[in-house]
């Protein structure tokens, strides 16, 4: 906006009504979360009034074995499923970008399907699917999470494929032809041209899928068993039993992790944009 002495009617940034609405909106958006974070330090069991600063609920959280194992489960699921879905998403994106095949248009739409349909439908379809193929109930630790990992891969990899594909659309075909001209074989082309080119998209989508998987409640809720409780599922059962500062403490930790991931993502993306 140009600065002018006259107050132009289209200069909506100076419209005070819009400003008030935005300010009130932001306050309502942040008040509950800030309240949650502040009251996690509250020294009161019922958590209604402020009774002094304490960190004992954080200690309680760290001493709680169930919570810790749930957190470990969440991290394991997020890491493994993100690695798998990044590989799957990358190959899907390259395939959709490079090759034309029968029913490709419908494949494109099918890729969007897990993103579009309501989460609950996705969750129960996973539950029904694992039941239908009689997926075994494993007893050993990482394998108990296998069905959640598969479910998470299936809902995160479309996001990754779409992000990488949108990056691939700006890759110049001449570069590939130059590579072929200089005698590179297919593997060399992928390793030396395509991978370095899509690296920022891979990183961005990796972090996105990681946070999506760490954050997901609905799909995990339907696929998790008694041996495979993740942090959001645990928080849900705690919330159903009542409101304690412990939940606030766990939530604050989870918020911090996610904000850290987001911050990392934004920093990385803006740095990359500058390079380009």
């Amino acid at each position: 906006m140009k600065k002018s002495l006259f107050y132009s009617p289209i200069d909506y940034a100076r419209n005070k009504y819009l400003k008030y609405i935005t300010i009130i909106f932001l306050i309502t958006l942040y008040l509950p979360i800030l309240n949650l974070i502040i009251f996690s330090f509250n020294d009161s069991k019922r958590n209604i009034l402020w009774r002094g600063f304490t960190t004992k609920y954080y200690n309680k959280v760290f001493e709680n074995d169930v919570l810790f194992s749930a957190f470990l489960n969440s991290l394991t699921i997020a890491t493994i499923s993100t690695i798998i879905s990044t590989i799957l998403g990358l190959t899907t994106a390259i395939t959709l970008w490079k090759f034309n095949f029968y029913l490709k248009k419908y494949y494109d739409i099918a890729l969007l399907f897990p993103i579009i349909i309501p989460e609950i439908c996705m969750g129960i379809s996973m539950l029904v699917f694992f039941n239908f193929i009689h997926w075994p109930n494993f007893e050993i630790w990482p394998l108990t999470l296998s069905n959640i990992i598969i479910a998470h891969v299936s809902f995160t990899f479309p996001f990754i494929a779409i992000i990488i594909r949108s990056r691939l659309t700006i890759l110049n075909n001449d570069t590939l032809e130059a590579g072929l001209d200089l005698g590179a074989n297919n593997i060399q082309i992928i390793r030396l041209i395509i991978l370095p080119f899509v690296k920022p998209a891979i990183t961005a989508s990796f972090l996105l899928a990681f946070t999506l998987s760490l954050d997901d409640f609905v799909i995990t809720f339907f696929t998790s068993g008694p041996n495979s409780i993740t942090l959001p599922v645990k928080i849900y059962s705690m919330v159903r039993f009542g409101i304690t500062p412990e939940i606030n403490a766990v939530s604050t930790l989870l918020i911090l992790i996610l904000i850290f991931c987001t911050f990392f993502l934004i920093r990385y993306l803006s740095k990359n944009n500058k390079e380009v």
Binding site: L29, Y30, L31, P32, I33, N35, L36, F39, N47, T211, D215, F217, P232, I235, Y236, V239, I243, I247, S251, L254, I255, L258, I259, C261, T262
Partner: peptide, 16 residues
């Protein structure tokens, strides 16, 4: 707020 968990945000609303 989109990056914070849906469950946590619902819970924080309950407290209010």
């Amino acid at each position: 707020p989109l990056w914070t968990n849906l469950l946590i945000r619902t819970y924080s609303l309950i407290a209010i």
